[in-house]
Computed example of a mutant assay.
Amino acid sequence: MEADPRGGPAGTVVVLGATGSVGRTVCAALHRTGHRVLAVARRPAPHLRAHPFTPLDVATAAPGRLAALLDEHGATAVVNATGGWGTTADQMRSAHVDLPERLAAGCAATGRLLRVVQIGSIHEYGPVEDGVLIAEDRAPGPLTPYGLTKRAGSEHLLAESRAGRIDALVLRAVNVCGPHTTTASFLGVVAERLRALAPGGTLTLDVAEARRDFVDVRDLAGAAVAAVAAPGRSRVVNIGRGEAVPMTELVDVLVKVSGVDPAAVRLRPAAVASKGGSWTCADIGLAADLLGWRPRIPLDASLRAMWDAAGDAEPPGGTG
């Protein structure tokens, strides 16, 4: 493959959802490894100034509009880092089903076989029993609306890939932590509440007796970069640490890195209310074999970076 002057592969990688925690980190990782990047989101954000940017809502855009954008920038790959924690059926269908369908149609309309890297979710498998290592060939169990729509979007991309219209890999990621983690996540909420704690105050946190797999967002971004040029297509690859960590342990680490007096924080047992049940642990063997990828960032360092980044957060409205 022809290389660009910085030593990376030729062609532009388009990152959808570039203003989010995962998207912005993928943009930065691609840039560091010599790729040309086009950031795409509904609205711009200051942290994307290093990259060309196009405002576009792919979930509602005509496929021809996306195809023209891909051709204009000489795109060879697209990373779909969109999605979110929508609460209504319409929101989840728009983000997780409509958008991948339009993405596949837009890529196919270019007449070129573009690599599409979908950032999927471990919740696409549904809950599993405690102790189960979740492999890529696992049949889905009962799915929440979130897991159902995420899986539908991923399966559509894989079907289009098998039909030869796109060249897709789906990265089913576990829970994400690290810099700029969304405040919609459990750890994001905990960090927000710790920052709001007044001197001398106390804080009670409801924490489920659950064990979950977490991966740093920078490690996930590294997997996305590897997937852009990985061999094979129409595959699902799990991305995680391959460890099921007690949620109480994660909260304890976050309290420690925050500097808040641990005596001021009380953990109260709570019922499991997660989309993934009481246990998640990904089998990450295929990621090592196919992508040459392994997680590198320890969870304590990840939570430290998450805390530090939250302190430097942009003002409201800065993430578009």
Rank of each mutant, 00 (worst) to 15 (best):
A227Y: 11
L113A: 13
R115W: 02
V251S: 07
A59E: 06
E249R: 11
V13C: 06
E155Q: 13
V132I: 08
V14G: 05
L290M: 02
A10Q: 11
L66T: 09
V79D: 10
L194V: 03
G276C: 01
G201V: 03
A108V: 08
I119N: 13
T280C: 05
L48E: 03
A109L: 06
S154K: 01
R138D: 02
R65S: 13
L133F: 02
A77Y: 03
G153T: 09
S274H: 12
A288M: 00
D213F: 09
V225I: 12
V228G: 08
Y146K: 00
V14A: 04
S161I: 04
V251P: 02
A273L: 13
G201T: 06
A287W: 02
R172H: 15
W85P: 00
H47Q: 14
E129D: 13
R43C: 08
A184I: 04
A229M: 07
R42G: 11
E314V: 15
L70A: 11
R172Y: 14
I166M: 05
A62Q: 15
L16F: 07
D252I: 01
A196N: 03
R268V: 13
E243I: 07
A28C: 10
P199T: 10
C27G: 10
G153L: 05
D206H: 12
A310D: 13
V13H: 03
V117E: 02
P199M: 04
R162T: 12
A210K: 02
A109M: 05
C281M: 13
V13Q: 05
V176I: 15
A3I: 08
T25F: 12
H156G: 07
R115N: 05
H180T: 02
L303W: 05
G242V: 04
V14T: 08
V116I: 11
R36I: 00
V26S: 01
A191T: 08
V237H: 11
D4S: 14
R42L: 04
A263H: 12
L103D: 05
A287R: 03
V257Q: 04
V128L: 11
L169F: 01
L70C: 09
I122H: 01
R294F: 00
D216H: 05
A287E: 03
A208H: 08
A288S: 04
G7S: 14
P52A: 11
D312I: 00
H35A: 04
A223W: 00
T248F: 05
P246G: 06
F186Y: 13
L69M: 10
F53M: 03
E101S: 07
A163Y: 15
G153H: 02
T182I: 03
D90V: 15
C177H: 14
V117N: 06
R49E: 09
P179F: 15
T202D: 09
H123S: 14
V170M: 05
A3Q: 13
A41F: 13
P262N: 10
E129N: 10
